[in-house]
């Protein structure tokens, strides 16, 4: 077992080097776990939708549970006009959730602990939401930076604050998920290291902490995927309905 708790986040190549126009696209351990997650999700959905019936089977119930959960979340946060975005939000949620959960297995790799992954998700959502906002409201989307019902002399200051707040959305969204995964896995690794170094006599206390932390991390894994999806929906809602 590696002693450095940050070593688990190292990305390394698997197989030969690949490149397109000089850009390195080599398959890495991160890509491998993305692939595993994708295969697991596809298998889950194939098994759930293979023989669909009005009276559902066990896996179909789970499939419907996930569908209804996301559908309800979108309806509550955005409304019924967000139905076209359902597949994207569902894919986002289930992909992040699966990657978070797989990362909890020993000797696995947490893809969502890579800041570039979470940042890419966040920037795609940010750009997508901005495009949707302009497409739906035209230049009126810029009103999002102008809070209603405030004195005019405060407007310059508040508009600047709103712009900064809007631009920091991808950063806050990505750092939240990345930092949670990073911190949780680092702590698990540190306590795991204590168990090994203290041995059979003194390792029981950190072991019990590790067990408790694992339970907490399972919760965090779900919660962070949910928070990411909910925040995406809230940003989408801002673009579609312009609450300001």
């Amino acid at each position: 077992m590696a002693t450095n708790p940050m070593q688990q986040f190292e990305v390394h190549k698997i197989g030969p080097s690949l490149s397109i126009n000089g850009i390195d696209i080599s398959f890495t351990n991160s890509s491998l776990f993305m692939m595993i997650s994708t295969i697991l999700i596809i298998t889950f959905f194939i098994l759930g939708t293979k023989k669909v019936s009005i009276v559902p089977g066990k896996i179909q119930i789970l499939n419907e549970l996930v569908f209804n959960f996301i559908s309800k979340m979108i309806n509550e946060t955005v409304g019924s006009d967000a139905k076209p975005y359902f597949p994207f939000i569902l894919t986002l949620f289930i992909f992040i959730l699966t990657m978070n959960m797989i990362g909890l297995l020993p000797y696995s790799f947490t893809v969502t602990s890579q800041v570039i992954i979470t940042f890419f998700f966040a920037i795609v959502i940010f750009i997508g939401v901005t495009i949707v906002g302009f497409a739906k409201n035209g230049l009126g989307f810029l009103k999002i930076f102008v809070p209603s019902g405030i004195p005019v002399f405060l407007l310059p200051l508040l508009v600047v604050i709103e712009i900064i707040s809007f631009l920091s959305r991808p950063i806050s969204l990505s750092v939240r998920l990345f930092a949670n995964m990073l911190a949780g896995h680092t702590m698990l690794k540190v306590f795991g290291g204590f168990v090994v170094s203290l041995g059979i006599l003194g390792g029981w206390l950190p072991l019990s902490f590790s067990v408790a932390l694992t339970a907490l991390e399972i919760l965090v894994a779900f919660l962070q995927a949910y928070v990411f999806a909910v925040l995406s929906c809230i940003y989408l809602n801002d673009a579609l309905h312009m609450h300001h």
């Binding site: 940050m6 850009i23 890509s31 959905f45 597949p87 894919t91």
Partner: peptide, 29 residues
């Protein structure tokens, strides 16, 4: 000690993320 900040495999990760996320999105959609 923050291997995530090493940009060496950033593009590769983004590439594979687009591929797998895209495939998943397509199948779900």
């Amino acid at each position: 000690g923050m291997p995530q900040l090493n940009p060496e495999f950033w593009l590769s990760q983004i590439f594979w993320l687009i591929i797998f996320f895209g495939v998943l999105y397509f199948l779900i959609h």
